[in-house]
Computed example of a mutant assay.
Amino acid sequence: MVLTGTLVNTGLIIIGTLLGLLFHKIPERTKETVVQAIGLAVVVLGVQMGLKSENFLIVIGSLVLGGAIGEWLRIDEKLNRVGEWLELKIGRGHPSNIAEGFVTATLIFVIGAMGVLGALDGGLRQDHDVLYTKGLIDGFTALVLSSTLGIGVIFSAIPVLVYQGAIALSAVAITQFVPDAILQQFIVEMTATGGVMILAIGLNLAGITKIRVANLLPGIVMVALIVTGLELLGFN
């Protein structure tokens, strides 16, 4: 089934979150250290992804234009509002940080090449190995995040399901209309651009910065536009 990988990925996030909630009594100092450790590991992942670029000017241009659009649209603010709404509905009566958990986990699980590549593989070849691997990583990350940030992490499964599911379902149409050369370069530069965002998430988790990463998300769309434009103009 086309959506098998996406459904498994989503399920592992939910399972990881529920397991993490069982360990919520971990001492605060331990939680802080663990989250910082995850942040540093995410930084390394982001650097590795960022170095995959074959034309870093595309990455810079995409992030600059995408960041400007994101600030104009106030994506970070709107995502936080969704989280705060969830917090009001579910966190009523006891202290929680549902908004932070939802936004942080959503950005970690959605940004990156594995979701796109895995969804494309699932849609085109019924091969779900990439999403199975991503699901294991996401599940473990959800376990640790939810032990610190709480139940809000579980709601990140919804955008993962919608985002990856949409790509998988439209994979055949994508390959019919998008030349292979453009698709391959898009994947490479999207990986690098997503890596910079992942790096920013890691720095935020480690408590080093407070970057509004969600406002950089339009950068992924800008990668597609820039890569297509360069191909049409004959610069590739």
Score class of each variant (00 low, 15 high):
N9V: 13
L12H: 11
L12K: 12
I13H: 10
T17W: 06
G20K: 09
L21V: 04
F23D: 03
K31R: 15
E32A: 09
A37K: 00
I38Q: 12
I38P: 05
L45G: 02
K52H: 06
N55M: 08
N55R: 07
L57E: 11
L63E: 04
G67P: 00
G67C: 06
E71V: 00
D76H: 15
K78T: 05
R81I: 02
L86C: 12
R92T: 14
N97V: 04
A99F: 07
A99K: 15
T104W: 03
T106R: 01
L107E: 08
V110W: 03
I111K: 04
G118N: 06
A119S: 15
D121I: 01
D127G: 06
H128W: 06
H128M: 07
V130A: 12
Y132Q: 04
T133F: 12
K134E: 05
K134P: 10
G135I: 02
D138M: 11
F140T: 00
L145H: 11
G152R: 09
G152Y: 08
V153G: 12
P159V: 03
I167R: 14
L169S: 13
V172S: 15
A173C: 00
A173W: 13
Q176Y: 07
Q176I: 04
V178K: 02
V178D: 04
V178F: 10
V178Y: 06
D180L: 10
I182A: 13
Q184P: 07
Q185P: 03
M190P: 01
M197P: 07
L203W: 01
N204L: 07
G207T: 08
R212N: 09
A214D: 07
A224R: 01
L225A: 13
L225F: 15
I226K: 03
G234L: 06
